[in-house]
Design a protein around this nucleic acid. Structure first.
Lengths: 132, 132
DNA sequence: CGTTACGTTTACGTTCACGTAAGCCTTGCT
DNA sequence: AGCAAGGCTTACGTGAACGTAAACGTAACG
């Protein structure tokens, strides 16, 4: 298996974060880079997790909430009890995200409405709007 | 017109926030309660804005970003230049929100996938999952 | 062999979004 | 008149999520 690891700088460039951020996430046990001597090497798993972390942040989740979600994506499938708990947590998160989606739809519709109204006002005043 | 104003406590009960939060939002010029003597009275406009503020927060926007968005919802329709600028800002926000929705759809799909996988693992182990 | 580039730890600083406590005013009972 | 409830200002405190500076290690390059 191509254990294609990356240095901290490569990670930073790829995800547009600072080294501090990656070290901070490691300290918070969100990612687990391996050590070559003293230096960190980030694995494919770390990249997958980081992607989910950044996504979660955009949705307004805290790092602690994200940590719980992350556990779902590589839960030990042999630990029945732990898996069941994780499954339940995931269910709550799913519900939350679906609610957020519904709310987002409303917000988008309202914003479009507002913009439509604005466009009309501007038209009345004889302005040209890039109406694409 | 029924200028149906509310006290700070009524607002807090209605929106599940603390007085501190409302005063803080006023200081940040997100809402503009009128004063009866020294006390704040919150208008319908304040309620509409607060609703949008809380929604924005759930989407991960900062209060400063939200403030810009809010201006859109009661822009002065006689100020053409200002309206045009606001319209443009709104366009960017709309794009951002649509991107967020797309991302959210992906996240939801992935999470469902993960849960499906988890459910199967649990089934293999002979556990019963509330499959509602 | 010096120095430049890249990485590390440790630790204090900062911004955002409020929480919390102290002290003061009015308003409405009783 | 007394006083409790509710609101106000001022100001310091707090947790999350990093930023930033200092001091050090080491690996490669000219």
């Amino acid at each position: 298996m191509t254990e294609t690891t990356m240095t901290i700088r490569e990670m930073c460039d790829m995800f547009e974060v600072t080294p501090r951020t990656l070290r901070f996430y490691e300290a918070k046990e969100l990612i687990f880079p391996i050590r070559e001597g003293t230096k960190r090497l980030f694995t494919k798993r770390d990249r997958a997790r980081l992607k989910l972390i950044l996504r979660g942040k955009r949705f307004g989740f805290s790092l602690e909430e994200i940590r719980q979600l992350l556990d779902l994506y590589d839960a030990d499938p042999t630990q029945q009890v732990q898996l069941a708990r994780t499954y339940e947590v995931a269910g709550r998160h799913l519900k939350e995200m679906e609610e957020q989606r519904a709310e987002l739809d409303v917000a988008i519709a309202e914003l479009k409405d507002q913009m439509q109204w604005g466009a009309e006002k501007l038209a009345e005043m004889g302005a040209r709007v890039a109406a694409e």
